[in-house]
Every structure is written in structure tokens, then in C-alpha cells.
């Protein structure tokens, strides 16, 4: 069998609700363990081991929430738009479910990035909020998420809602490079990226390693939260199939 055929078959198997439901339990179990370990390592390194910044003092420790939240806000948006696009083109139900259930998590990360940034801005810039390019484009990202969520509940038919949401998400993806390059294109209060060059990051290792752990923790957190939501929606959607009915009977036997 050619590699293409293998991939094709794997893709379809993976997109089948029952297969995904089963495998999601295994993935989320590992993801939550990695998530907890990374959080402990990241928090210990970030709050205790890392020395205070020579300019920002201890206030730079807000970074360990702010940066992972902001990165994940962008990452989840891209996942949402790509999954929405796959659902739009190939009518894969699972992709629509992934897109829809990513939205509240992404909105949470965006909220977290905005709030932590505002609180960090007060001691560093003297203001919670300034209307500069990075902050404004990030606020637009938050509104895109809210618009997407509102759109999902505006339609009776979930498939119509998924299609409308996918178009909104794909149009809104133009905001992602704007957010990324906003600190280079326009003069801004927001500092530039500290680890744009992997080989020579402008941040010391003792500060960088906890950040990497926090990013991993946020990423695995997203996977865990998403899989629980996706599983639930698969059960609802597939509730008339024999495998779900059998599953419900089995769960009953376990709980009784």
C-alpha cells in the first residue's frame, strides 16, 4: 500500500467518531499528566528559581502567564480556522466539532492575555491600556472569538452554524499576522519578541526554560479541555448509533 493511501486511510479512521472517541480518552489522560508536570516545573522555575529582571524587577514574572496565554490565543485561532476550513471543504463533521469547541478555550486564553497584559502594563507603562497596534489587534482577536461564539448559538442547525463560523474564522485569520508583526510594523509600547531567534534568544536560560514549560503546560491544557468538549459533542451527535447506546449501557453498569 502506498504511503498516500496509508495516510488517507489513517485520516479517515481518525476522523470517524467512534475511533476518535476511544483514542481521545487515551490522549487526554497523557495530556493531563504532562500538563500538571509542566505547570509545576514552570511555576517553580518561574516564580522561585528565575532571578528578578534587571529592568523590570519581579514584575516580569507575569510573563509566565501572559506569553503562553497570548501564544495559545493565536494558536487556537489558527486551529479553529483550519478545522473550520476542513469542515467547510470536505464536510468532515469532526473538524466542525473541533472548530466549535476550540472557540471558548481560545477566547479564555485571549481574555487571560489581555487582562494579564493590562495588569503588567500598569507598573511598567503607567497605564492599564493604550491604543497601540499590538493591544488593539489583540482586542480585535477577542471580538472575533466572541463573534464566532455568538454565531454558533444564532443558528438552530449546528451544521449551518459551523459553516457560517468557519467563514468568519477564515476571514478573521488575516488578523493573526497583523498581531504577530504589529510590534515591528508600528511603533508600539509593547516589547518585541524575546525568543524570535531560537539559536540566540535575548533572554537568559534561567528565565527561558520556565517559559517553555509554561507554554507546554498551556498547550497540553488546551488539548485536554478540547478533547473533553469534543467527546461530549460526539456523544450527543451520535446518540442514536449502536456504539453510543452500547457505551451508555456499559457506563451504567460501571456506575451502578
Amino acid at each position: 500500500m502506498s504511503l498516500y493511501k496509508k495516510c488517507h486511510r489513517w485520516f479517515h479512521q481518525f476522523a470517524s467518531p467512534k475511533y476518535f472517541y476511544d483514542i481521545s480518552h487515551i490522549i487526554s489522560k497523557y495530556a493531563i499528566v504532562v500538563c500538571i508536570i509542566c505547570f509545576i516545573a514552570g511555576l517553580y522555575g518561574g516564580l522561585i528559581l528565575a532571578p528578578a529582571d534587571y529592568q523590570q524587577g519581579d514584575s516580569f514574572r507575569i510573563m509566565y502567564v501572559h506569553v503562553p496565554a497570548a501564544w495559545m490565543a493565536l494558536f487556537v485561532y489558527v486551529v479553529m480556522a483550519v478545522a473550520g476550513g476542513i469542515g467547510l471543504i470536505w464536510h468532515i463533521k469532526l473538524a466542525e466539532i473541533v472548530a466549535r469547541n476550540s472557540a471558548p478555550i481560545g477566547a479564555s486564553f485571549t481574555f487571560l492575555a489581555l487582562v494579564s497584559g493590562a495588569i503588567w502594563g500598569k507598573p511598567m507603562w503607567g497605564a492599564y491600556w493604550v491604543w497601540d497596534a499590538r493591544l488593539t489587534s489583540f482586542l480585535i482577536l477577542f471580538f472575533l472569538y466572541l463573534g464566532y461564539i455568538a454565531l454558533q448559538s444564532a443558528f438552530e442547525d449546528r451544521r449551518v452554524a459551523a459553516r457560517a463560523g468557519a467563514i468568519l474564522a477564515l476571514v478573521g485569520i488575516v488578523n493573526i499576522p497583523i498581531i504577530h508583526y504589529s510590534v515591528e510594523w508600528w511603533s508600539t509600547l509593547h516589547q518585541g519578541s524575546i525568543i524570535s531567534q531560537i539559536d540566540k534568544p535575548t533572554v537568559h536560560m534561567s528565565m527561558l526554560i520556565p517559559l517553555i514549560f509554561m507554554v507546554l503546560a498551556f498547550k497540553t491544557f488546551y488539548v485536554t479541555s478540547l478533547l473533553i468538549r469534543v467527546r461530549t459533542e460526539i456523544l450527543e451527535y451520535e446518540s442514536n448509533t449502536s456504539w453510543v447506546k452500547q457505551l451508555l449501557r456499559d457506563y451504567k453498569n460501571v456506575t451502578n
Partner: peptide, 19 residues
Amino acid sequence: MGGYAKYIWPVYGICAVVL
């Protein structure tokens, strides 16, 4: 937190609640 407690801990608290 070197005098930044009133900025740092609320951020971590909000983060914990959201997660």
C-alpha cells in the same frame, strides 16, 4: 515579590480561575 505582589498575584489568581 519585590513590591510587585499586587500585580503578580492577581494575574496568577485569574489564570487559576480561568483554567
